[in-house]
Measured scan of single mutants.
Amino acid sequence: IINNLKLIREKKKISQSELAALLEVSRQTINGIEKNKYNPSLQLALKIAYYLNTPLEDIFQW
């Protein structure tokens, strides 16, 4: 999986903590996703895309 979450999140000036709060997950979860240590569920990936107002395929590429 190619993961552009960190790049997109930083472009939008959103911290890991802010995104985690919006998604109701821990900051460690966001960190793990960004470091490719954790693959989000489809539901979480869709929520990330929604809150970042970015197409899912721009954030994650399988």
Rank of each mutant, 00 (worst) to 15 (best):
I1L: 14
I2N: 11
I2Y: 10
I2K: 14
I2A: 10
N3M: 04
N3L: 03
N4V: 04
N4W: 06
L5W: 00
L5H: 01
K6I: 05
K6L: 07
L7W: 10
L7N: 13
L7H: 13
I8P: 01
R9W: 04
E10N: 09
E10L: 13
E10K: 11
K11A: 14
K11Q: 13
K12T: 07
K12R: 09
K12G: 04
K12C: 09
K13P: 03
S15C: 04
S15D: 06
S15W: 04
S15R: 07
Q16T: 07
Q16V: 13
Q16M: 09
Q16F: 02
S17C: 11
E18K: 14
E18I: 07
E18A: 12
L19I: 04
L19A: 03
L19K: 00
A20K: 02
A20D: 01
A20F: 01
A20V: 03
A20S: 07
A20Y: 02
A20L: 02
A21L: 11
A21K: 14
A21M: 14
L22F: 14
L22R: 09
L22T: 07
L23T: 12
L23V: 15
L23P: 00
L23F: 02
L23Y: 02
E24Y: 09
E24P: 06
V25L: 06
S26P: 15
S26L: 03
R27Y: 10
Q28G: 14
T29V: 15
I30G: 00
I30E: 03
I30T: 01
N31F: 07
G32R: 14
I33P: 01
I33L: 09
E34K: 02
N36M: 12
Y38M: 12
Y38E: 09
N39H: 14
N39G: 11
N39T: 15
P40F: 06
P40V: 11
S41F: 04
S41L: 03
S41D: 09
S41P: 12
Q43K: 13
Q43A: 15
Q43Y: 13
Q43V: 13
L44F: 09
L44I: 07
L44A: 03
A45N: 01
A45P: 00
A45D: 01
L46T: 09
L46M: 15
K47P: 01
I48S: 01
I48K: 00
I48G: 00
I48Y: 01
A49L: 02
Y50A: 08
Y51E: 05
Y51M: 11
Y51R: 05
L52E: 00
N53I: 05
N53Y: 05
T54M: 07
P55S: 09
P55G: 06
P55H: 05
L56G: 02
L56S: 03
E57W: 08
E57G: 11
E57C: 11
D58R: 07
D58T: 11
I59H: 03
I59V: 06
F60S: 00
Q61F: 12
W62R: 08
W62M: 12
